[in-house]
Amino acid sequence: MLRVAVAGASGYIGGELLRLLTGHPRVEVVLATSNTFAGRRVDGPHPNLRGRTKLSFAGHDALEERAGSYDVLFLAMPHKQTMGRMARYLELAGTVIDLSGDFRLRDAGVFADYYETAHTAPGLLGSFTTGLPEWHRDELRTADRISVPGCMAAAGILTVRPLAEAGLIDGPVDVDARTGSSGSGVSAGSSNLHAERSGAMRLFAPTRHRHEAEVAQATGLPVRMTATGVEAVRGVQVLCRVGLAEGTREADVRSAYRKAYADEPFVRVVAHKRGAYRLPEPKILAGSNFCDVGFAVDGARASLVGALDNLVKGGSGNAVQCLNVRFGWPEETGLEFTGLHPN
């Protein structure tokens, strides 16, 4: 059994990691850290884990104290907290999988621009492999430093990159992203109270959402992203508006998606002419590791649509999929849940 530790395990992403890893047949979770809940059982903040584990939280100091007792370290810490400690984290485990935003971008200047702070470990930026198996599988097989993309970035990359690789996009990409309230995290603050969020469609990033830099980095295209909070708890949907290269037909767009994702276990092409779910819809993906991608073509322009669960394929599930790739296991291991309908 592979021994794993989860740092920052009391948040939503950490809870999803524990849910997936405690059900993983080849993994034993030996340590889950949280300074806030140190000494308390993990099924307190994560009541869905009742009866699934007897694990209790330890403080973050336990990562040092128990070094050598785990093989893989998952970091589910808030943005800007891992970069200052990463050099030490890399000494504590053979493989480190970071789910924060600190090592997603390769350029320290771009990081400073989007995160509004200087990167404190710029020399490590290029040493992390992007944790998106669909586009980095070969690198992930031997990677010991993995950085999992942001939820809206993962959806945007999976949606746009097949057409970018095929040379079918002409000009910039406009990404209109929508996300549920869990994307704000467990400590979101007063603006995300139910009384404030219920019934709202809040455009919280009218320009330059930080995930646009990840999509631009992955596709080589200029990207503009807006982000809106919607009433759902889980889910991300991105609507990416693009111009098509001269002569591009609908059949070419469909072919690019089919070529890119024909053998992928967790990406499905959903582009039908009719039906309630004729295009990707996050509602039916809750709890699953799927990302659905689709499109609609109108002459020289196309609307590209992607949907996923922000906590699973947009975070913890993607991290577990990377773990499976890294250790040579079937990618579906521990990720078999298909989502619910109706939900």
Rank of each mutant, 00 (worst) to 15 (best):
G315D: 02
A205K: 12
A216L: 12
L90F: 00
R41W: 07
R254S: 10
L308A: 04
Q237C: 01
D144F: 13
V27D: 03
T22Q: 13
P162E: 04
Y89P: 05
K313I: 00
Y12N: 15
G185C: 00
R178V: 05
E134Y: 01
V110I: 13
G23K: 09
L140I: 11
G183P: 01
S190C: 00
S69A: 15
R50H: 13
D298Y: 05
P78G: 11
C291V: 15
D144N: 15
G44K: 07
A143I: 14
A121R: 02
A121M: 03
T142N: 14
R52E: 11
G39T: 12
A188C: 09
R104W: 02
N289H: 10
N48R: 15
G84L: 10
D174Y: 09
D309K: 04
R254N: 05
F295H: 06
A271N: 04
V175S: 05
G109C: 00
S191N: 11
A62W: 12
A153W: 13
R3I: 06
R161G: 03
V312E: 01
L124Y: 00
E91R: 15
D113V: 00
F111C: 03
A271K: 00
A286D: 03
P222L: 07
I146N: 04
L132H: 03
G328Y: 09
G235A: 06
D309H: 05
S34C: 06
F290E: 05
G8A: 08
V320G: 07
R208N: 14
P162A: 04
T95L: 08
L21G: 07
T207Y: 12
